[in-house]
């Protein structure tokens, strides 16, 4: 089946953190990930899935509330999908595509 083979292939994406968020993720700015292309319920993998996935699998710091509050990206954290404001892309509902680049930038730190 087409969908099954897709899901087995996985969905390679690049996730980047800056503005201080990298501190929560092993102090590493760029992460190459391979996500399942469908979530547990068979829906296409979207940003909501990615955010949960990052908290559950990639975060090396206990301060989850620096990144996520009330199940969504904390206000003050900007999200760019392929260098565009995620507000242009449907935010959590955006369905990730192969080789997408997702950048999370915190604006909460001193300047």
């Amino acid at each position: 089946m087409d969908t099954d083979s897709k899901s087995a292939q996985g969905l390679p994406i690049v996730v980047e953190f800056s503005g201080g968020l990298e501190l929560l993720f092993s102090n590493q700015r760029k992460h190459k990930l391979s996500l399942p292309s469908r979530d547990g319920k068979g829906h296409a993998t979207n940003m909501a899935y990615l955010v949960r996935y990052l908290c559950d699998n990639l975060m090396s710091d206990a301060r989850q509330d620096m990144f996520v509050v009330d199940d969504t990206v904390r206000p003050g954290v900007l999200v760019l999908i392929n260098d565009a404001d995620w507000e242009l892309e449907g935010e959590h509902q955006y369905e990730l595509k192969k080789n997408d680049n997702v950048l999370f930038v915190s604006t909460l730190h001193g300047g």
Binding site: L108, H109, G110, G111
Partner: peptide
Amino acid sequence: GGCGSANGRSS
């Protein structure tokens, strides 16, 4: 705001 202590962690 400019002192860098404008922090986001406030839980």
